[in-house]
Simulated assay, not measured.
Amino acid sequence: MDKLIIATRGSQLAMWQAEYVKGELEKRFPDMTIEFSVITATGDKILDKPLALIGGKGLFTKEIEEVMLAGDAHLAVHSLKDVPTELPEGLRLAAITKRDDIRDVFLSHKYENIEALPEGAVVGTTSLRRQMQLRAIRPDLTIKNLRGNVNTRLRKLADGEYDAIILAYVGMKRLGLLESVPFHDPISDEVMIPPSGQASLGIEIVDDPEVAKIAETLNDPDSALAAKIERDFVARLEGSCQVPIAVNAKVYEERVLVRAMVGLPDGTEILQERIEAPKEKAENLGRELADDMVAQGAKELLARAESMAFKEERCERF
């Protein structure tokens, strides 16, 4: 294959991710020409409404997938946590890159960490998952919706619209923005469980053997196993961006540990479980954990969460 076209959104973080993948492929295929097709997704255009009300995570992948299906791009680079569990016919996830730091990060110009926030402090987040866990820790805080790209969110924080905001640590690190905020405190994943796919890139391709052979060189087996477990969990619960779901699979040398949490956005009711198995028997852990939580009432809890969230809440981003 002489030429490969990568479809990507045009945001600063999306371009970092696409450039990273381009660089990795150029190391492996130095004679191949690699170009970008930059798409402005609907989710990047509509910034005044909650994503849950205008289409959810698919808003960040739909136009890119249309370009690929039309034959105008071979491969797309996504933040894996933004990729729906079901993909259009003719496309598939061919690789999951090595997972980076999975934590969220607390950002503030006035306060060192969550514990230092005064009662009633205003915290910005786009995520029902973060909101649920934050309210469970600090029910006295005021949670305020937060939209826009990373720089827009940081500007709103600097302008004093929020006392603190919470973003994904990896995005801030990749863009070199951590030092731009006086207080940046990574939140332990024991305190705030990440979402499915956080800190991995998903490489989506047209279902073509030649493209697959190229893309699969980017795959990290342990990260791919973790991603499968997490995505299976979300799929079994029929989770969407209108419900708070946290799930993380950690792959060790010999074992895999999966932790998950679902609940109400206000943090008043939470169901949390974990499961562990030898690595060679871990492939179905996501479905097994989901079935266990369904038996404990997870779907009913999420149905109540959706009825609470649909009126005003939002999808996971950054």
Results as ranks from 00 to 15, higher is better:
residue 111 Y to S: 01
residue 200 S to W: 07
residue 99 R to H: 03
residue 85 T to S: 11
residue 178 L to K: 02
residue 201 L to N: 09
residue 76 A to K: 01
residue 88 P to S: 08
residue 62 K to F: 14
residue 96 I to D: 11
residue 107 L to Y: 02
residue 136 A to F: 09
residue 77 V to Y: 00
residue 93 L to R: 14
residue 121 A to G: 03
residue 143 I to V: 10
residue 192 M to R: 00
residue 70 A to K: 14
residue 150 V to L: 12
residue 83 V to E: 00
residue 192 M to G: 02
residue 127 S to I: 02
residue 104 D to V: 01
residue 196 S to F: 01
residue 131 Q to P: 06
residue 133 Q to P: 00
residue 199 A to T: 01
residue 62 K to I: 10
residue 87 L to T: 06
residue 185 D to H: 14
residue 149 N to P: 03
residue 86 E to S: 09
residue 126 T to H: 13
residue 173 K to Q: 12
residue 152 T to W: 07
residue 118 P to N: 13
residue 158 A to I: 07
residue 81 K to D: 12
residue 157 L to Y: 01
residue 72 D to A: 14
residue 93 L to A: 08
residue 80 L to Y: 13
residue 111 Y to A: 03
residue 140 D to E: 09
residue 201 L to P: 04
residue 77 V to E: 00
residue 136 A to L: 08
residue 166 I to S: 01
residue 77 V to I: 13
residue 127 S to F: 03
residue 182 P to W: 05
residue 79 S to N: 13
residue 167 L to D: 03
residue 161 E to A: 05
residue 69 L to C: 04
residue 120 G to I: 09
residue 170 V to R: 05
residue 108 S to M: 14
residue 86 E to K: 13
residue 196 S to V: 02
residue 89 E to F: 06
residue 107 L to I: 05
residue 162 Y to M: 08
residue 87 L to P: 05
residue 138 R to A: 08
residue 96 I to A: 10
residue 191 V to E: 08
residue 187 I to H: 03
residue 182 P to Y: 07
residue 144 K to M: 12
residue 148 G to T: 08
residue 118 P to C: 04
